[in-house]
């Protein structure tokens, strides 16, 4: 796809990954393409798994940019996607906000681990993230999202992040986090983030959860394992910084095994 300029003057860029089982227990990547600021690289996988790294060729997204990343784990694939570094949302010369869309699909006998590094909302930025995941019945997913509000000692930018997960066409999770200047009131109050500057989610979908859902539990009052209305669980966590957040999420994930 060609790199084009959006109407608002920002950059429009798309990256695509398609993974498929090779029929011999491995995973091939018939589609692996990025453009402009969104580059994708295959890295060494382990066993049946293919690993892909999102590489930010330049920092962004800036105001006016519209990035889209689409990944599809098709039949038999085991795909793990990470990122080389944190994504930094920055203010642009353009006053309009930036958009970052993530579209993920997982087929019945496939597995996707979507584990990018943190998204940092820098002061003055305005980013709208939408992550939508469509899973077939029987698909497996591990998805991590981490939002860090502001660089060290900095006021956060405006960040809106919506995460939607469908299993077999049925929506099991739809949640939006809105924070930063201009976000609806109370976002940083006792019901919202209460001064925490790192917030994260893990979504775990395993067919086995349909009959044996994980138990709900909390960790240090900063994280909770929440079995959803379907074969899926959400881990939601808040922390003072990115390091503590990752530790909370890792601990909660380990408790699911």
């Amino acid at each position: 796809m060609d790199r084009v300029t959006t109407a608002a003057g920002g950059v429009r860029a798309t990256a695509r990954v398609l993974a498929r089982g090779d029929g011999r227990g491995g995973t091939v990547l018939p589609v692996l393409e990025g453009e402009g600021p969104l580059a994708v690289r295959r890295t060494r996988g382990s066993g049946a798994e293919a690993r892909v790294m999102l590489v930010g060729a330049m920092s962004g997204p800036l105001g006016g940019d519209h990035f889209t990343v689409a990944a599809h784990a098709a039949g038999g694939a085991r795909l793990r996607v990470g990122s080389a570094a944190a994504t930094l949302a920055l203010p642009g010369q353009d006053k309009t906000g930036a958009c970052y869309d993530v579209r993920l699909a997982v087929d019945e006998d496939a597995e996707l681990c979507w584990l990018p590094e943190q998204l940092i909302s820098a002061g003055g930025s305005d980013l709208h993230v939408t992550t939508s995941v469509d899973l077939a019945a029987g698909a497996r997913l591990l998805l991590r999202e981490e939002q860090v509000l502001g660089r060290a000692g900095e006021e956060p930018g405006r960040l809106t992040s919506r995460l939607t997960v469908r299993i077999d066409g049925r929506c099991v999770l739809d949640q939006e986090l809105a924070c930063g200047p201009g976000a609806p009131g109370g976002w940083d109050g006792p019901a919202g983030l209460a001064g925490h500057r790192a917030v994260g989610q893990l979504v775990v979908v395993r067919p086995g959860f349909a009959t044996e859902p994980p138990a709900a539990r909390t960790f240090e009052e900063g994280a909770a394992v929440l079995p959803l209305a379907g074969p899926a669980a959400l881990v939601t966590a808040v922390a003072t910084d990115a390091l503590r957040l990752r530790r909370l999420l890792d601990g909660a994930l380990a408790s699911l095994d």
């Binding site: 919506r162 949640q175 909770a224």
Partner: peptide, 10 residues
């Protein structure tokens, strides 16, 4: 809408 408050859930 789907707006959520993390500390309400936790």
């Amino acid at each position: 809408p789907a707006r959520s408050a993390p500390l309400l859930e936790i």
